[in-house]
């Protein structure tokens, strides 16, 4: 299984990543990709920017572990996880998860799984900036519940 992990400041290009994941293969039947975008409302209604912090070294390892676990649960041919760090503004793409498999179901479910685990297990922290000040984003119970779905299945 091909695994591509990148934590980067620069923007990513979904088509380039798709070409990278499928390069030289003709046995892939399905590619599912999820792109997360920065919203202009979250804990407060006027988010003007956010700053993404990570833990260099551990974050990349944690993403590898999540991708490998997806590969253990579903018959994947490849998985890409790209997460941006630094300052981002509403309308910027922040995260890309792409999965490849022979049949669509595995790619759909693995992509969903990777995002749920990424949100609860990968060391990233968001700080939102608004006109009324900046604050660190709190974790969400709904994210923890979403991740726990996979523990009983």
């Amino acid at each position: 299984m091909k695994i591509v992990i990148n934590v980067q400041q620069d923007a990513f290009n979904t088509e380039v990543e798709q070409a990278r994941l499928t390069e030289g293969r003709s046995d892939i039947g399905a590619i599912v990709s999820f792109t997360g975008w920065v919203r202009d409302f979250n804990e407060r209604p006027d988010v003007s920017a956010l700053t993404l912090e990570h833990f260099p070294g551990m974050t990349e390892k944690a993403l590898h572990v999540i991708a490998r676990e997806a590969g253990e649960r579903w018959a994947l041919q490849g998985a890409t996880i790209i997460h941006r760090v630094g300052r981002l503004e509403p309308g910027d793409a922040i995260v890309l998860v792409m999965t490849a498999s022979a049949h669509r179901r595995a790619a759909f479910e693995a992509c969903d799984f990777i995002m749920d685990y990424l949100k609860t297990r990968a060391p990233f922290w968001k700080k939102e900036h608004t006109d009324s000040g900046s604050y660190w984003v709190s974790e969400r119970q709904s994210d923890r519940e979403a991740a726990s779905r996979w523990e009983h299945s």
């Binding site: 833990f55 997460h83 995260v95 922290w125």
Partner: peptide
């Protein structure tokens, strides 16, 4: 040893 708050990426 690193200490940090709950993660909020994605």
């Amino acid at each position: 040893i690193a200490f940090f708050p709950p993660v909020t990426g994605g």
